[in-house]
Structures are given as C-alpha cells and as structure tokens.
C-alpha cells in the first residue's frame, strides 16, 4: 500500500450551517476545558484531569462527520471527544464533579466518560485498551451487516503498544469499518515521541499491515474533516480501516498535575501559533460563511452553556453512598 499525504487544499464544500456547527463545537471544546482548569484549581474536581487544549481540530474534524449511531472510543483525555459526540456539557461537567447526574453517574470521573445513548463507548484510562473495544464495535457492525463506523482516538505513545499493532492486523484481516486516529502531540507525559518510537512517522506503520495511512495536519479542522470524510466513506463502503496520524500539540501539561517543565518554551510557542481556532475563524470569515459578530455571538452562547454546566454540576446531588455496589452487575439497572 502506497503511503499518501493528503492534499490539504481541496475541501469538500462547506455550507454556512456546517461551518457554524464546526465552530460551535471547537469553541465548546476549548471553553469547556478552560473552565475545567478553573474548577480544578478551585477544588471542584479531583484526581487526574487531562485537558485537550490545542488538539480540538481533531475531535471536531473527525467526530462531526460521524452519524449518531457511529461509535467512538477515547482515552483519559476524553472530555472533548464526548462533547463532540453529543454528550451534553452538563452531563460531562457533572461527572467531573462526581455527581449522580454525570454521564457515568459519578462512578467514572474524568478518564471514564461513557454515554450509551451517544455510542460513546468510553474514555479508557490505560494506554491502548480502548482500541480493541472500538474494534469490537466495528466487528459487530460487520457481523450484523450495518454500515456503522467505529473511530478510536489515541496518542503517539500508544502506537508503541501491542494492542495497537494487534488491532491494525485484525482490522485489515476482516476489513472492519474502523478509523485509527492518532493524535500525535509529540509527548507521552515526559517521553518524547522520537525517544519512544523507532519509526517516528506513525502513519507509515500502516504499511506493515497493507492499510492506508495518512499524515494529517491536526491543527487544521478542515484538513481533519477532509481526512475523516475520506476514511469514513471507505469504512462505510466495507473497504476497511484507515490509520490517520494527526500532528497536533497540547497547549497544557499532560494533566493538571503535570508541572510541564520539560517542554521547550520555543516548541510551545511554535505550536501556539498554529492554534486551530483562529485558523477556523479566519477560514469562515474569508469564505463569507459568517461574520465576526456572528462568531462572537456563538462564543457568548457557548460561555453561557459552559457556565450553566458548572451550575448544574454544583446543584446536582452526589450519588447516595449506600448505592456503592449498584451497577456492578447487569441485574442493577
């Protein structure tokens, strides 16, 4: 299989409605995560909280091309994938507050967001373990003869893990409708990608499995969207899986507990300049799809929505402690 670099200049046409939908989603991701940082420092949420700032183009670009009945798995950095898949900000924020109204009823927390209603099959806290789960959903689609597609998101560090390779192999063997979306943000906590992987071009790893692999600009929503359109179409048509390496960067530390002292300020500055949000804003305005005032209005609406989510989280009840054992077994509804 020849490796291809996706031509970034040709986009499927975008109408105003879609442009605003993408804008709304990407702003929601950023605003929500910034609010999480505030809430964490104010002692409203606990444990490990991994924010997605900087990588939003990937979530918006890919997930917004999916149907509601398509499946998504994510990692410990899962808030924004959940939001893009349609899980309401209230349900995500309440989960981060550990409340009974959270999308995992307060049992999961930041790294274990789930929504059966939205076919979000989970945030997975261990590296690589969500990939087989997404593969299983793709297998089920093939088994039942539906045209549902499964998308799993994971980072560069995961591409050195056995489950990644094992699942690429099975996906090709059985031509499963799945997208392997790597968010290569160059760092696994403090381990640089080039120190961890003997082949730094992750998309080339697809070649070993005779699978198409693409390098995608993960800081560009429209390029992610275009890669998604192509790979989803291929998966839905029963032509098999695709590996997509999205070059991206996280603007914050690995988690809010990470002092983030290792990364060179120059490197951070370089990537800051590629912030996907101004890039999308510029595109929308240049194409005349919406005015600056309209985009400003969306930002205000999103801010209000996220503030409402915080209020909802604050006002929600904790799960009753005497329900500690509830939900372990299928008999507990």
């Amino acid at each position: 299989m020849v490796q291809e670099q996706l031509a970034p200049t040709k986009y499927d046409p975008i109408d105003r409605q879609e442009a605003l939908m993408l804008y709304r989603d990407i702003v929601l991701g950023r605003t929500f995560e910034d609010m999480c940082a505030q809430m964490y420092y104010r002692g409203k949420m606990f444990g490990f909280v991994h924010l997605y700032n900087g990588q939003e183009a990937v979530s918006t670009g890919f997930i917004k091309q999916l149907r509601p009945d398509d499946y998504v798995t994510s990692t410990y950095r899962d808030h924004v994938h959940a939001l893009s898949k349609g899980v309401p900000p209230r349900a995500v924020m309440a989960e981060l507050f550990g409340k009974a109204t959270g999308c995992s009823k307060g049992r999961g927390g930041s790294m274990h967001l789930f929504s059966a209603e939205h076919n979000l099959l989970g945030g997975f806290a261990f590296i690589g373990e969500g990939i087989p789960i997404a593969l299983g959903a793709a297998f089920a689609a093939k088994y039942r003869g539906t045209d549902q597609v499964s998308v799993c998101f994971f980072g560069d560090g995961t591409t050195n893990n056995g489950q990644f390779f094992e699942c690429l192999n099975m996906a090709v063997l059985w031509k499963l409708p799945i997208l392997f979306v790597v968010e290569n943000n160059l760092w696994s906590i403090g381990m640089q990608h080039h120190r961890a992987s003997s082949v730094t071009d992750i998309y080339r790893k697809a070649d070993a499995f005779d699978m198409p692999g693409y390098l995608v600009d993960g800081m560009d929503t429209l390029e992610c969207r275009q890669a998604a359109i192509k790979a989803i179409k291929r998966a839905r048509a029963g032509e098999g899986p695709t590996l997509l390496e999205c070059s991206t960067y996280r603007f914050r530390g690995h988690s809010l507990a990470d002092p983030d002292e290792l990364r060179d300020p120059k490197e951070k500055e370089f990537w800051r300049k590629q912030d996907p949000i101004p890039k999308l804003t510029k595109f929308i305005q240049e194409q005349g799809l919406a005015s600056a005032a309209e985009l400003k209005l969306i930002e205000q609406e999103i801010r209000a929505e996220v503030e409402d989510a915080v209020q909802f989280g604050e006002d929600s009840p904790e799960p009753p402690v005497d329900e500690l054992y509830r939900f372990q077994f299928a008999e507990d509804e």
């Binding site: 099959l121 373990e129 087989p132 593969l135 299983g136 056995g162 094992e166």
Partner: peptide, 26 residues
C-alpha cells in the same frame, strides 16, 4: 467464519474486541 471466528494469537486484543462487541449487543 464470523460466528466461529479464528483469531490471530493476540489474547489481550481479541478479548478486548469481544468486550467491545458485547457492549454493543453481541
């Protein structure tokens, strides 16, 4: 083939695949 699925030798991944399939109803 699909209902009696011969897998490659990759226990963790095919077990995970089965769990994913079970989550969506198989």
């Amino acid at each position: 083939d699909l209902r009696v699925l011969d897998t490659p030798i990759c226990e963790n991944s095919f077990t995970g695949m089965a769990i994913g399939a079970a989550m969506v109803g198989l």
